[in-house]
């Protein structure tokens, strides 16, 4: 038997495709955050006012808070199953860099929640009176922002691995860290709606994403190692 070692890159690819295939076989987990996002956004016309003019004013906040909470909702399951069935142990002992595997899992989480949430935002935006011209800006800002949310969330999910019923704690840990994303994202959306240039907050969102991509997988890997002990 000739044995060819798997490279770190293809190991990460395996983890990514495995998570995507698992999600396809269990679509309810995929749909839940989207449904949650829709319900939260659609509660505002009912709870506040059906007047599109007024809704447009709060649309940035509604869209971003909704996306933030929905992506958080999907976080709890990010590591939980892998931890309970022994998969994370195998990730640690398989000789591959854990940071790469964590990055792959985070990417899978973003593809399964952040990206669909982003694509859904314009639809909800229309219901909140957002003009069509603002959609590209909203899409782009959410695309950048949800990357950072997934990265922050992976760290939080890793840290709460050893905690019983850690769902509430997970929100408590990640929400303050997500404040900058919320601030810059909502501002970008606001500028997009009023038809101004949103490059300023977009750059800031991009900077946060780069910082997150650099540091968050390291922190998540350290957290997972500790959580398994």
């Amino acid at each position: 038997m000739t044995v060819r070692r798997t490279t770190a890159f293809s190991a990460a690819g395996l983890v990514l495709t495995r998570d995507l295939r698992l999600a396809v076989r269990r679509p309810s987990q995929l749909i839940q955050p989207l449904a949650f996002f829709a319900v939260v956004a659609l509660l505002f016309p009912l709870g506040y006012t059906p007047e599109l003019g007024k809704l447009r004013a709060i649309a940035p906040g509604v869209l971003w808070v909704g996306a933030l909470l929905a992506s958080m909702l999907a976080l709890e399951s990010l590591f939980r199953e892998d931890a309970s069935d022994g998969t994370l142990e195998q990730f640690v002992v398989c000789g591959q860099p854990l940071v790469a595997l964590m990055a792959a899992k985070t990417l899978a989480h973003w593809l399964l929640t952040g990206l669909p949430l982003t694509l859904m935002a314009p639809v909800l935006g229309i219901a909140l009176g957002v003009p069509v011209e603002a959609m590209p800006g909203i899409l782009f800002s959410l695309l950048l922002g949800t990357v950072t949310l997934s990265l922050i969330g992976a760290v939080g999910a890793g840290l709460t691995l050893g905690v019983r019923r850690g769902g509430v704690l997970l929100s408590l840990l990640t929400l303050p860290l997500a404040v900058p994303v919320l601030v810059f994202g909502a501002r970008a959306t606001e500028l997009a709606i009023s038809g101004e240039s949103l490059m300023g907050p977009l750059y800031l969102l991009g900077a946060l994403a780069v910082l997150g991509i650099t540091l968050a997988p390291l922190a998540a890997a350290a957290a997972v190692r500790i959580g398994l002990e």
Binding site: R26, D85, T87, Q90
Partner: peptide
């Protein structure tokens, strides 16, 4: 815990778990 995913077949699980290494 044998690190097996209940939604995958036996063959898929082996291909993944061993595939991480070789």
């Amino acid at each position: 815990d044998p690190a097996l995913k209940s939604d995958f077949t036996a063959a898929e699980n082996i291909a993944f778990n061993v595939g991480l290494r070789r």
